[in-house]
């Protein structure tokens, strides 16, 4: 009950704040294009060398966070819809052992590929503000790596309930990280580190945000396909 109330208050606050922060269209001067403005001021404003990441993680952070929320909701929906089929069926695991094994080539290739894909995913996430990529793309790569690990028999399958809890926690921490700047900067959903600091230090916010988004996306997609693989077995 308290949890629900807190969530409701949080969303209500965000909604009202978003309504209050809307600028009438007539007030926006169109003398310089928005793209040119971002190119000119992007690095100074956001400390991100990748201007796409500058828009995603600073200028339009509000949109990005709720985009991440959509994935949370869809993962929760998949979890809810496939709930019954997993618990009602208690098929013994030994049946799998008697089945003929999958191809040895796939097994060997996925064993070799798995650690490299994890590494590449983390690289894409952490360097999201310097080079193309970011939380979403890196998260998808991490999820693909875990999807490949389905073919590795020694690896235990994911516990989806725990993953869903992790995803919820990550989403809430994303939201609260976006709101920290309300205290320090006076405006929500922007970098909470003050402007006069060195860009190399202000970069910390973007890396943190990318990491959270990446882990959230990867756990959401992992939930979806783990349920998908298990369902009906």
């Amino acid at each position: 009950m308290i949890k629900k109330l807190v969530l409701l208050l949080m969303f209500g606050f965000i909604f009202i704040y978003a309504l209050a922060a809307t600028v009438p269209l007539a007030d926006i001067s169109l003398e310089t294009s928005i793209g040119q403005t971002v190119i000119d001021r992007g690095y100074d404003d956001t400390a991100s060398k990748n201007l796409v990441a500058a828009i995603l993680l600073d200028y339009r952070l509000f949109d990005s966070i709720f985009e991440a929320g959509i994935l949370l909701i869809s993962a929760a929906g998949v979890l809810y819809m496939t709930q019954s089929s997993e618990y009602s069926k208690s098929v013994p695991r030994s049946k799998e052992a008697t089945a003929p094994k999958d191809s040895d080539t796939i097994l060997a290739v996925s064993r070799i590929l798995y650690p490299f894909m994890l590494l590449f995913g983390f690289y894409i996430i952490v360097f999201g503000d310097l080079s193309p990529g970011g939380g979403f793309q890196g998260g998808v790569i991490l999820a693909t790596a875990r999807l490949i690990s389905v073919y590795i028999p020694e690896k235990a399958s994911e516990n989806t309930d725990r993953l869903n809890r992790l995803e919820k926690i990550l989403f809430l921490s994303l939201l609260s990280l976006g709101l920290v700047s309300l205290v320090t900067q006076g405006a929500p959903f922007t970098n909470f580190l003050p402007r006069y600091l060195d860009p190399e230090i202000r970069r910390f916010f973007l890396v943190l945000l990318n990491l959270l988004i990446g882990l959230k996306v990867s756990s959401g997609l992992t939930i979806i396909f783990t349920r998908f693989v298990k369902e009906g077995r």
């Binding site: 990748n50 796409v52 990441a53 894409i124 193309p132 990529g133 970011g134 979403f136 793309q137 998808v140 790569i141 999820a143 693909t144 999807l147 490949i148 389905v150 997609l221 396909f225 998908f228 693989v229």
Partner: peptide, 22 residues
């Protein structure tokens, strides 16, 4: 470049794997 990375990760890795499992 960012869109290209997302397309390559989803369109040519994740979705085909999903379909093959299906």
């Amino acid at each position: 470049y960012d869109v290209a990375l997302a397309e390559i990760a989803i369109g040519s890795a994740l979705l085909p794997l999903f379909f093959i499992i299906a």
